[in-house]
Amino acid sequence: MSEDSPTTFLAIYIITFLIGFPNSVLAFCSCIHKIHNKPIPIDLFMLNLTISDLIFLIFLPIKMKEATDGMVWKMPFSLCNFHLFVFLLPVYSSSLFLTAISVERYVCIAFPVKSPKRIIYTVPICVVIWVIVAVASIFVYKAGHIDSDEANNTTNQPPLEPEPQTCYSTFTAKQLKELLPVRLSLAVLFFFLLFLTCCFCYINFIRLLLKRPLIKRQRKLRAIGLALGTLLVFASSFVPYNISHVVGFIKKENPKWRMTALMLSTLNACYDPIIFFCISREMRRAIKVCAKAFSQFFLPI
């Protein structure tokens, strides 16, 4: 890790928090308002996606503190374990909920018959997604902490030598033997398969949408923008992180640039509200109101 990496990490974390937190709060309030008035499946998926981002953003200051300390862990050891779970949770949940949104939008246009049972099915789907995400995060945590007493640099106990401590970045050969296959499996299940599913759903969604002459051009463009935006979120946020899993498995090592790839995935918390902006009319209206109030407060009359 280069000397200026902690500064870069800190800058990315601050930008993510300043942009993502207020927009996620706004998206959360808009979701609650929409669900209270007329709940539909896509709003429930967006609500859970927003909750995932908010959980991540609330605990993001822990990563800011780590970056401020030069990526040296100076906080309690138990906090490292907790923050690891919280930090990985939105990486997997965002992929699943974004895929659920793509499937829902494809189903809506491919099978436009409205059924009240769809909203009933959505709730257990969301619960199952959270259970899968929690189990996946625990697997990663357990695999990375097997035989931790042999690690030269661990946060589970004070090191034998007075060297700088890091959180979840140095592993023994036994830990890597267990951890690398788990990472590869998660990359296949939570990224590559989900990304292909999103591509299939949105390509067919756009194809069917363009065949509907009764739908206004503005709505078509907005829907196409949403599809392309979702795929962009996958590509920009999760490709480097999951590629590091593949490279690490092939080379049988923990790639040195993996932390940078993981840092880039945090920007996903900035992108998700943009997707919600494309979907929700209430979100666009709320942003206009906030922008108008902001301009009236700061600009001279």
Rank of each mutant, 00 (worst) to 15 (best):
P158H: 04
L194R: 10
A110T: 05
L232Q: 01
G144D: 07
F297L: 08
D272Q: 14
H36C: 10
I15S: 03
F139H: 06
Y202A: 05
C270I: 09
L84P: 03
S169Y: 13
I250Y: 13
I109S: 06
F276I: 07
I51Q: 06
L26V: 01
P61W: 02
L88Y: 10
V103A: 08
P240L: 11
T172V: 11
T155N: 09
R217G: 02
I224S: 06
L193N: 10
I224P: 03
V188N: 02
L54D: 11
F294V: 04
R118I: 07
C108W: 00
I62N: 00
D53G: 06
I40D: 04
F56D: 06
V86C: 14
F111E: 15
M75G: 00
A143N: 06
L180I: 03
H245G: 01
P300Q: 11
E163N: 15
R217N: 08
P90S: 06
S185V: 10
I101Y: 05
L179K: 06
W73R: 12
I109A: 08
G248E: 10
L18N: 00
K288S: 11
E66F: 08
P22N: 05
I101P: 00
S2W: 01
L98Y: 03
E161N: 03
N23G: 00
L176F: 06
A173K: 05
F28R: 05
S93C: 02
L193R: 01
C290S: 09
F276Q: 05
V239P: 02
A286D: 15
A293P: 05
R105C: 02
I206F: 01
K38I: 02
L96P: 07
E178W: 07
P164Y: 06
I12M: 14
L57G: 07
M46T: 01
A151M: 14
S244T: 07
I250Q: 12
P159W: 06
Y141W: 09
Q165Y: 05
A261V: 06
I274A: 07
S265D: 11
E161G: 00
Y141N: 06
G20Y: 11
I146M: 15
P76H: 02
V91P: 01
D272R: 15
S185R: 03
Q296A: 09
V247R: 15
A227P: 00
I138P: 10
V128R: 03
F85S: 12
P273N: 10
S93Y: 10
L44Y: 01
Y121L: 07
M283Y: 14
I15G: 04
I40C: 04
I243M: 13
T197R: 11
V107Y: 04
L208F: 01
I224E: 13
P159N: 15
V113Y: 11
Y168D: 14
L299D: 14
L299N: 14
T172Y: 09
V133T: 14
K174C: 03
L57C: 13
T50K: 04
C31Q: 03
Y202F: 12
V182I: 02
A151Y: 03
C290F: 07
L267I: 15
L18F: 07
G20C: 10
P240D: 12
M46Q: 08
A143K: 12
L96M: 15
M263Q: 12
S236A: 15
L60E: 04
K177R: 12
L179T: 00
T68V: 01
P41R: 03
P158I: 00
S95G: 07
N153V: 09
L210F: 04
L184Y: 05
Y168Q: 13
M263I: 10
T155D: 09
F139N: 11
